[in-house]
Design a protein around this nucleic acid. Sequence first.
DNA 1: TTTCCTGTGGCACTCGTTGTCGCGAGCATC
DNA 2: GATGCTCGCGACAACGAGTGCCACAGGAAA
Lengths: 209, 209
Amino acid sequence: MGRRTSGNGARRGRRPATSRAELERVAFELFAERGFDATTIDDIAAAANIGRRTFFRYFGSKNDVVWGNFTEQLASMRSRFASCPPDQPLMEAIRDVVVDFNRFDPQVVPWHRRRMELILKVPALQAHSTLRYADWRAVVAEFVAQRLGTEQDALLPRAISHATLGVCIAAYEHWLLHPDTDLCDVLSRMLAELAAGFGASVAASTPER
Amino acid sequence: MGRRTSGNGARRGRRPATSRAELERVAFELFAERGFDATTIDDIAAAANIGRRTFFRYFGSKNDVVWGNFTEQLASMRSRFASCPPDQPLMEAIRDVVVDFNRFDPQVVPWHRRRMELILKVPALQAHSTLRYADWRAVVAEFVAQRLGTEQDALLPRAISHATLGVCIAAYEHWLLHPDTDLCDVLSRMLAELAAGFGASVAASTPER
DNA sequence: TTTCCTGTGGCACTCGTTGTCGCGAGCATC
DNA sequence: GATGCTCGCGACAACGAGTGCCACAGGAAA
């Protein structure tokens, strides 16, 4: 190895015509204007002054655009899990990390909302997001497995990661529906409910009729 | 209304060339042979002796084929919920109904396994299944909301239905991975874990390092 | 200048999906 | 048994996502 950088960080060939971030920005503008489905790759490419073919060198699919640099963020979530105090109860650790993972600067919140609006409301993206969720779950399952001393694909890590994801999506949907609520607060409450087996609010659910 | 059946169940126009069930059968054979992705609509149509256009009159998409008559089954799950004793605790009722919903005749189990193998392992189907899951969740959420006296799209019904679905998928994945296990048993155990907040098996998860 | 490397983008092709439209095959009615 | 009405079939065309191929552009290094 060691052939690329000749000492400094010098590049070699032709310079990229754009960047993922720039493409994302342009695409989101179009999505906002005419909607996700009505925006074609050609539209995006034209608006970004690149060829249609080039678009696919930056994103594997049209769907991928809305996920930005999710993979990088997952890495940070993984490291957050790694730095959890070992004596912290499992479900509590998950709650802390997940809530923290979804904490954003107030200034980027509107942006994040638009992104999640797409992901959770456009059917094509709802569907595609499942594949990204799998990566997210893998991070949670990895942590659970390590804590429980089991394989990552054992039943319990799987179940907990799936259930945790489900609760988070529910919280997100609620947050989108009620713009005045605080996402982290909703997430925190629902993850607590999950840890309690939905016991607190449901215990006496043997009411009338 | 009342214009179709002229007293008896007489049909009127041309007879259908095939049926959903038949198409499903033919398609599954091809999927087993060459895989889902490598099977084109033309392949299926040709094997079923119908036109490519006609295929889309029976199924809205290639993905839909693997879900068979899921919608009808959901109706039965809804009625099962309706007949739950009102004094049964919420999470317990969910467990009973869901486990029962996934109980199959031993003779159709291999078939069901093949179906779920596709749904949970082929990426295109993993993605698409999200849309079907939404219908499933709606049935659960409807029941929860009725029990809790809230709107169906309130936070808790949403969260519980999402979490329940998650746990079920985890159980299914485990069942696919370990063919010797009993699906209903795994489902039952994991739904109990969920109701307990993953407390039983996890409580003392403050072990070494 | 030449060489090499890397990103670009046009072209052509596959495949899923949809709208349109004319045709075919039954039933009912005269 | 001709006619009309219906409902399903299927050919055709078109669109858009995604992919392989390949020639080319434009910078760095030799």
